[in-house]
């Protein structure tokens, strides 16, 4: 019975396998990095959306609270920075 693939092809494939594994590792890392940055960015956006809405409302009522609500609004930004650091550590 004939093999589905030519023997020479099997050899070539075997030789290629370490490269393929390496390449797929790089790819997986890139995907992992993208998940790290995108999920944290989305979470930051979600958190800042809620805080920002309230902050604008509060500032409209009482302009002097601008400084404190600005701080509250930017607090979740740290989340995306964490994501970024993880992503950079993954791909460097």
């Amino acid at each position: 019975m004939a093999l589905p693939i030519e023997p020479t092809a099997v050899q070539t494939l075997a030789a290629l396998t370490p490269d393929l594994i390496k390449a797929s590792q790089v790819g997986t890392k890139a995907i992992a990095a993208s998940i790290a940055i995108s999920t944290t960015a989305a979470s930051t956006a979600l958190a800042e959306y809620a805080i920002g809405t309230a902050a604008v409302g509060a500032t409209a009522e009482k302009p002097e609270v601008f400084g404190s609500v600005l701080i509250l609004t930017v607090i979740p930004e740290t989340i995306v920075i964490f994501g970024l650091v993880v992503a950079l550590l993954l791909i460097i």
Binding site: E77, T78, I81, F82, L84, V85
Partner: peptide, 12 residues
């Protein structure tokens, strides 16, 4: 830890 990491934004 979290405050120190937050400074990564200077680079980012």
């Amino acid at each position: 830890i979290s405050n120190s990491m937050s400074y990564a934004r200077l680079a980012a």
